[in-house]
Amino acid sequence: MVNPLQFNGAEIARDHQGYLNDLNDWQPELALLLAKEEQLELTPAHWEVINFVRDFYLEYKTSPAIRVLVKAIGQALGPDKGNSKYLYTLFPIGPAKQATKIAGLPKPAKCI
C-alpha cells in the first residue's frame, strides 16, 4: 500500500501503485520526493529522461512503454542514450515505470 504523499502542506492523491492521479499536481520539487521513494538520487542524466517522458506525455497524451521510450529518446538525444542499457542504469527497476512515476504521469499500459 502506498503512503499518502504530503507536499507543501497538502496531500497529493495517488493510485495504489504510487502514480499521481493528476499530472497537474506535479512540480520538480515533488519529483525529488517521488525519487526518494524509489531510492534514486536524481542526477542531470535522470532529469533529462524525466523531462523527456513528461514532454512525451504532454504531446502524445500517453505514457511511453519501454520500447517506445528507447526509440523516442534515441531519435531526440542520440543512440548513446536511446538504448535500454543506459536507461536501466539510471532507473534499475524499469525506466518506463520509474521515470513516468517520478515525472507525475500515469503508468504506461505495457510496462516492463
Binding site: 504531446e59 502524445y60 497524451k61 500517453t62 511511453p64 517506445v68
Partner: peptide, 14 residues
Amino acid sequence: GKDYISTFKALPLY
C-alpha cells in the same frame, strides 16, 4: 473525454 487523438501522432514510434 480523454485526448487519445493526440496519441495517433505517436504511431511511427510504435
